[in-house]
């Protein structure tokens, strides 16, 4: 248990009253949240949004991570990027976010503030506006750490037509950068492994994905971000959704050497490691080189790679095949269960 002593004043911790809806709660919001999020405006019971044009995309996600801060990111950045990335890979330009925070009584306020500042910075970086929010405090012992929830609304990019049904034989599969760094960074921090070189890949992909869809329009068939379950799981989801056979070339998959080394030490397969700032895109074969060129020119897209192709659709048995470094071929499956550091 954290000791209350140590010179911290009483108000330096979250208390149940901060989430009560009373005066203290109102002050709390005015002081700690409102200044960072101008989009909250009048703080009525709901935000009124005025989308233009081609329709909107809407998504929500909740975030827990242990530890709250890890090399290259923290739960605040995750909460923003996780949701904006879900919008971006749907072909939308993220515009508005909601933010809900569930905090335990006794949480030091400087931790709370650091997380909220990080949310604000990440939102600014992505060009989204936090327009509504909520804070709840739960009794000590009911929660360790924090829970963040964000919902996001984005405006569809004109010409975007993303659907697994449009995936066809000959399409190329692109990944927007090296995979697996996020999960390794979090594990390294959690287990004090000191892999300090490895930073989470936690980032927004809205700019890159927006560039791709904005330029190539409907030549981009489908996109998804490989979070839990990693690249292998997204490829399987894609194969199933499109009833497709997919061939991936192991040597073409970008993996930072440090991530590969850490995965070897911990006994993890990088193809199943979570990323928080990458996306997989399926692009019409003839436009693949153009897509690659455009993404490589953008900040954060330098290491984009074409990793394989769709070889067939309308298969009764969708399958992801991996052409191994060894010149052999095997099936690549879904993640069965979260990977943990292991001895064998």
């Amino acid at each position: 248990m954290r000791q209350e002593a140590g010179g911290r004043r009483q108000e330096a911790f979250i208390t149940l009253a901060h989430g009560s809806g009373g005066r203290l709660a109102a002050e709390f919001i005015q002081r700690r949240l409102a200044p960072l999020f101008p989009g909250l405006g009048e703080m009525d019971d709901a935000a009124v949004l005025r989308p233009k044009g081609a329709g909107i995309a809407f998504t929500t996600d909740s975030f827990v991570v242990d530890p709250l801060f890890f090399p290259g990111g923290d739960i605040g950045r995750l909460a923003v990027f996780g949701t904006v990335n879900d919008l971006a890979v749907q072909g939308a330009k993220p515009s508005w976010l909601s933010l809900a925070v569930v905090a335990p009584e006794g949480l030091p306020l400087d931790i709370f503030d650091a997380v909220i500042a990080s949310v604000a910075a990440a939102a600014k970086e992505t060009g989204v506006s936090v327009v509504t929010g909520d804070t709840k405090v739960v009794e000590r012992g009911g929660l360790s750490g924090l829970i963040l929830n964000t919902a996001g609304i984005g405006e569809m990019i004109p010409g975007a037509d993303l659907s697994a049904a449009r995936i066809t034989a000959g399409d190329a599969i692109i990944v927007s950068g090296p995979i697996g760094a996020h999960e390794v960074a979090v594990l390294s921090q959690r287990h004090s492994l000191g892999f300090d070189k490895i930073q989470s890949d936690c980032a927004q992909v809205a700019c890159l994905a927006g560039e791709l869809v904005g330029r190539l329009k409907d030549a981009v068939r489908w996109m998804r971000d490989p979070t839990r379950g990693g690249l292998a799981t997204v490829l399987n989801e894609m194969a199933v959704a499109a009833k497709a056979t997919i061939e991936i070339v192991e040597d073409q998959i970008p993996i930072e050497p440090a991530v590969q080394n850490a995965a070897d030490i911990l006994g993890l397969d990088p193809l199943y490691l979570a990323c928080e700032g990458r996306f997989v895109a399926v692009v019409a074969g003839p436009r693949a080189e153009e897509a690659l060129r455009r993404l490589k020119l953008r900040p954060g897209g330098e290491n984009t790679a074409i990793i394989g192709s769709v070889t067939g659709v309308d298969n009764e048995h969708p399958q992801v095949r991996l052409n191994t470094r060894f010149g052999s071929r095997r099936i690549l499956r879904y993640l069965a269960a979260d990977q943990q550091p292991r001895i064998c």
């Binding site: 492994l193 892999f195 490895i198 440090a258 590969q260 080394n261 030490i265």
Partner: peptide, 8 residues
């Protein structure tokens, strides 16, 4: 040092 990283 294991490749690109260092570990205790």
């Amino acid at each position: 040092r294991v490749g690109a990283i260092t570990t205790p």
